[in-house]
Write a protein that binds this DNA or RNA. Structure first.
Length: 309
DNA sequence: CATTTCCGGCTCTACGCGTG
DNA sequence: CACGCGTAGAGCCGGAAATG
């Protein structure tokens, strides 16, 4: 079958509707359900929220905030670090730049203030999350891009010209985009009118936003079924033989998007992460023979796993 | 035809703070 | 003092395309 091209229009080779491993029949729906059932027995049920969770100044994690731009920036900050570090950075952001009071972004960090202030200030604010210089650079560049693009979109809306990804927007949504642009109110809410793949493609154009970050925002904020692949999800997909041993994370994402039933994508993402952190035998840098292996509790997935992969 | 250049696909590593 | 976390970019390889 056609191999996916990586190019300027598709940096990571994301696909939609087919897998990079078209010959693969796994995971079947039944296999996904079995793994899901076992993990639920072990860690408890996980349910995808149907409404946006209330905004929080202490939760950086994986895009679980109502405003899309806020989610994207918070998720970027939460990468390459532990959740606790990311939370500290987000608290500091709220303290330094303030929180929006109303609108869709109520509870959101005031990214307009971040956009207007110098990069150095941001570097110092998010230091606790690690890689502060690089992340601040990415965020500042992203905010600049968002500003430029929403201005361009607004002008096109006013001129009655077609706007990419806005095919499904009604007049009210278009008017709102124009209003935000006129007021220089940075927003990415327009991606809500897009399809999953359009939204993902939109996100990964921004610097510092890769497939994982984009998929997390799609999954948690847009609440699309989306098989976000982090280090734990990737590991289990290999150990379960769902993808080849040598699969990279993007191919695992592409294959998972294709094979994992929509209704299990959210739960499996959450449960794989929890299991990868909680199960002694499945933790990073633990392998058969390492300290405490024999005394450690059995893994409920043991019979399905090949950890040598 | 021989040589060079290009490019997809892959691996490896910097990045950095906080934790154990 | 090793390690987690994910992206970007460098480096490598081999086949394809371009060049002489």
């Amino acid at each position: 079958r056609k191999k996916v091209k990586r190019g300027t229009t598709n940096k990571y080779g994301m696909t939609r509707g087919y897998s990079p491993y078209p010959y693969r029949t796994v995971p079947t729906k039944e296999q996904c359900e079995e793994v899901h059932r076992i993990l639920v027995e072990t860690h408890g049920a996980v349910m995808q929220p149907t409404a946006a969770p209330p905004p929080s100044i202490t939760v950086a994690g994986c895009g679980e905030v109502p405003a899309v731009l806020d989610a994207l920036c918070r998720t970027l900050i939460s990468g390459n670090t532990l959740m606790a570090n990311a939370d500290k950075a987000v608290e500091k952001l709220a303290e330094v730049y303030g929180i929006l009071k109303d609108g869709v972004g109520a509870g959101s960090i005031n990214w307009n203030a971040v956009w207007l202030a110098p990069k150095e200030k941001l570097v110092n604010t998010i230091r606790a999350a690690g890689c502060p210089d690089r992340k601040a650079g990415h965020i500042k560049a992203t905010l600049d891009m968002v500003h430029e693009e929403q201005k361009a979109r607004a002008l096109a809306h006013i001129a009655g010209e077609p706007v990419p990804g806005a095919q499904n927007e009604d007049d009210g949504q278009k008017a709102l985009e124009v209003k935000k642009a006129v007021e220089d109110y940075l927003s990415l809410e327009h991606v809500r009118a897009m399809t999953v793949d359009e939204a993902l493609a939109e996100f990964v154009r921004y610097p510092g936003i890769g497939v994982k970050t984009a998929a997390c925002v799609a999954l948690f904020t847009l609440r699309f079924p989306c098989f976000a692949v982090d280090t734990h999800v990737h590991k289990f997909c290999k150990w379960l033989g769902w993808v080849p041993e040598k699969a990279n994370d993007v191919d695992t994402f592409n294959h998972g998007e294709h094979m994992v039933p929509d209704h299990l994508k959210y739960a499996l993402h959450q449960l794989f992460i929890r299991h990868g952190q909680d199960c002694f035998k499945c933790r990073k840098n633990t392998k058969p023979g390492s300290d405490g292996w024999n005394e450690a509790p059995d893994c409920p997935l043991e019979h399905l796993l090949d950890r040598s992969k």
